[in-house]
Write a protein that binds this DNA or RNA. Sequence first.
DNA 1: TTAACGTTTGTCCAAACGGTCAAAAATTGC
DNA 2: GCAATTTTTGACCGTTTGGACAAACGTTAA
Lengths: 205, 205
Amino acid sequence: MDKPAARPKRTRIQREKRELIGEAALEVFSQHGFRGSTIDQIADAAGMSKPNLLYYFKNKEEIFATLIHRLMETWLAPLREMDAAGDPHTEIRSYIRRKIEMSRDFPRESRLFANEILQGAPRILPLLEGELKELVDEKAAIIATWMRAGRLKMSDPYHFIFAIWATTQHYADFDVQVRAVLGENRGGEGRFEDAARFLEGLFLA
Amino acid sequence: MDKPAARPKRTRIQREKRELIGEAALEVFSQHGFRGSTIDQIADAAGMSKPNLLYYFKNKEEIFATLIHRLMETWLAPLREMDAAGDPHTEIRSYIRRKIEMSRDFPRESRLFANEILQGAPRILPLLEGELKELVDEKAAIIATWMRAGRLKMSDPYHFIFAIWATTQHYADFDVQVRAVLGENRGGEGRFEDAARFLEGLFLA
DNA sequence: TTAACGTTTGTCCAAACGGTCAAAAATTGC
DNA sequence: GCAATTTTTGACCGTTTGGACAAACGTTAA
């Protein structure tokens, strides 16, 4: 078994700077992808020189890996909260709400994640096959129970979850397209609220 | 007004080679994105030398632009076919079918497109605001008519279309994740058929 | 045969990029 | 105040990359 690579003790400055770099890297990576981003761009965005940045992260890969692994937790949190003991409609509704809010408030994170998956998830495939699959298996089972009990319209719980992911994240990942199509009038901030209402209707018919 | 840049007359070899390069470029670009792909990779995939490739396309940008513009037509075709005179349920069902089939049969095209949008659609934004918006406006109006006539469940026609896009394309763009979650048993080719059935149920409830 | 034209390649270049290093500057602990 | 340690930087290096170019090769038709 691998030890979890004893976390190096860090100074206050190190913690702060790594945080600052993470924020800058999120901005840059989410806009240009891994290969499209340069260390210089990230260093600029973080207000420091390239060698200085490389004092805190040993290379570009490590910045990206740190970012995306931290992101996975945030990303799965809403699904984790889905409670077997709760009311099905309420649970699904608030899951959709939370996911739409994440698309509205953290579009960069969503795009970073989408980018990684699009490229074949080279860095997080094990997490998808392990942690994510287990979580989805668990929640799909709950949803299946709800459906069998007649408390939710019958359908395939896995594809049900996929559909919620796809539709909610669409508003972050394909934001440009959504705004282009909605145009001036309806493309404002209200689009997230409209989307949320539409999706509740769709999934809780 | 701009003239449409009088198309240069091409020899048979030029047409064939440009086609060959397009196919190779689709393979490479859809896997690594624009910045992540090199002209050398594309040339290799097309079985020719880099200078040879650059004899047919003046630079990397032109290869990509040609690809994505050609792609747009294919991509919008299914929506174009939606017929106001047809039966609403039949029309929607076959639209979903066609879109799922495209995800299954042309995942590279889907990913290339997703990549472009994710980066902010730098090369096709005008098309999204023009041609695409017009098409969607037209079809959303048809759907709205169907809804008002009680022939389709009432909802927001724009978000209805977005949801179909998001869910169907999800099976191409997030394929790795879908397969990771479904696992060995259900992750086989049958997943597209399962998805199609699920989505018909979802959208035509 | 040869001139004209289309195609292919080896070689080369400048810029961009990821990353190193040693030395300077700032901070911390005593 | 001073030594030890941490942080920051300018200069530098090797590699990759997009692209240019001229020369060679092939094809066609008078």
